[in-house]
């Protein structure tokens, strides 16, 4: 169903202190990873709202990553716990409205984990490639909230 030469588009909301710095480290040590990811820097993973994720899907993202500091290591203390709780719930909502929850990833990458960041992106790109392009009108899950065609 995917067009030829299609490459997924992945939006990553990453916290300034851990994952953004981890992504920088991946660059500093010249690792290489799939270019399909675009990073949006936020102060904390707890700053990301479900609306942003929905908007990203609306604007053509095939998957969204939210990544911050490891549990216990949040620069602000507890922001990543808020994100974890929020998006655990939100994934259930995604299923309900008919978006495959596997299109939303949560991961913890610290400032020293450049390698983990690169691997994460590669893995994510591969899995999203097999999920295919996100197209809401012909989705995906058989959630009870799946919209009918109009």
């Amino acid at each position: 169903m995917n067009e030829k030469g299609w490459r997924p588009k992945i939006v990553a909301f990453v916290c300034n202190w851990c994952t953004y710095a981890g992504a920088d480290l991946a660059g500093t040590v010249r690792l290489s990873y799939s270019p399909e990811v675009l990073l949006i820097r936020v102060p904390c993973s707890g700053r990301v709202t479900p609306f942003m994720v929905l908007k990203a899907f609306e604007r053509g993202a095939d998957a969204v990553l939210i990544s911050g500091c490891h549990p216990g290591d949040c620069h602000y203390g507890s922001g990543n716990y808020l994100a974890r709780r929020r998006f655990h719930l939100f994934k259930q909502l995604m299923e309900f409205v008919g978006i495959n929850p596997n299109r939303l990833w949560l991961s913890w990458v610290s400032a020293s984990e450049g390698g983990k960041f690169a691997n994460l992106i590669d893995k994510m790109v591969n899995e999203i490639k097999s999920l295919g392009k996100f197209n809401y009108s012909m989705e995906e899950t058989k959630g009870e909230g799946t919209p009918k065609h109009s």
Partner: peptide, 19 residues
């Protein structure tokens, strides 16, 4: 400036400068 309050505010009444 973590922005936790911005997301929590139901009315969208808090603005995090810079983000």
């Amino acid at each position: 400036g973590c922005g936790a309050c911005v997301v929590t505010c139901r009315g969208g009444c808090i603005r995090l400068e810079g983000f």
